[in-house]
């Protein structure tokens, strides 16, 4: 039982990270209509931006905003230079382009920061022991951070004009345009949110494990699985999807080699595609 609870804790931590990525994938899909294969590497970029600050012996309170701004800036430049000219063509061309962007970002990270494993803080964190469960301070930070970010996103989507415009555009682009919504501005905001959350996911992933140029790419499959599970294009579904995938991946280690963790995410996704292609929340089919 204690072992199960311990895995549940790890699953929630991993699920929080996946959720932050999946919301971004889902938003971009809902508004720009393509599966962004560069999203995992955007996470990596965010994690390494934070590393630059951490290496200057500054606190993570400085690292976070710097990484946010850096990653958002990178996403906006990519959108402006590469994605925007392709937007009038079929969405699947954007998908190919994002696939190339993923490799470009990864090789840039490798060129600038090298391909060795790195950490934000050297040394081992002593876990708290609560009722037999081991929980590291970083893991509490990750889960609380994810809750705060998701709550902020919820308030933004529900209460601001831009949030409403985004939801309208995700539902029906043409209708949104007819009602006078500035679609290019919505696109900019979409990248701001998606890249911001990606940066957070990357940093959290780096805190939970280590930094490596393929860290984000390796999480891309679970992130996609979570987005599909929740109904792609539905940011709220992504939260449920992320937690389910995270917890399922950790529980699978009870009876499967941990090497197959990504396969578990994929298996769940395939089952979902067969049983309910529109996802838990009834996203786009």
């Amino acid at each position: 039982m204690a072992e199960l609870l311990q895995l549940l804790v790890y699953g929630i931590v991993l699920g929080s990270i996946i959720t932050l990525g999946a919301i971004g994938v889902s938003l971009v899909f809902g508004i720009l209509r393509f599966a962004n294969f560069a999203h995992g590497d955007l996470m990596t970029v965010g994690a390494y931006f934070a590393l630059v600050v951490a290496n200057l012996q500054l606190s993570m309170w400085v690292a976070f905003p710097v990484a946010f701004l850096g990653t958002i800036g990178a996403a906006l430049v990519i959108d402006r230079v590469l994605f925007r000219p392709l937007r009038r063509t079929a969405p699947v061309i954007l998908l190919i382009s994002s696939f190339g962007v993923a490799l470009i970002l990864r090789s840039l990270v490798q060129l600038i920061w090298g391909s060795a494993n790195q950490v934000y803080e050297a040394g081992i964190q002593m876990p708290y022991v609560v009722m037999g469960l081991r929980i590291k301070p970083d893991q509490i930070t990750i889960v609380l951070g994810a809750v705060v970010l998701v709550t902020a996103l919820h308030l933004f989507l529900q209460n601001t004009k831009m949030g409403k415009a985004m939801r309208a555009m995700a539902d029906n682009v043409d209708l949104a345009r007819v009602t006078g919504i500035d679609t290019e501005r919505v696109v900019v905001w979409t990248w701001v949110i998606a890249a911001g959350l990606a940066a957070a996911a990357g940093i959290f992933l780096g805190m939970d494990t280590r930094l490596h140029p393929v860290m984000g790419w390796k999480l891309l499959l679970p992130v996609f699985a979570a987005a599909i599970l929740g109904g792609i294009g539905k940011p709220y579904g992504a939260i449920a999807g992320g937690l389910v995938i995270g917890i399922a991946q950790e529980f699978s280690t009870l009876f499967l080699s941990p090497a197959y963790k990504p396969a578990v995410a994929f298996g769940l996704m395939v089952v979902m595609l067969i049983v309910r292609p529109k996802g838990l929340m009834g996203g786009r089919g």
Partner: peptide
């Protein structure tokens, strides 16, 4: 399914 799902599924197959 639509093409994006196929893309994601094939990447999953490759990984597995």
């Amino acid at each position: 399914l639509r093409s994006d799902y196929l893309a994601i599924a094939t990447i999953g197959i490759a990984e597995i």
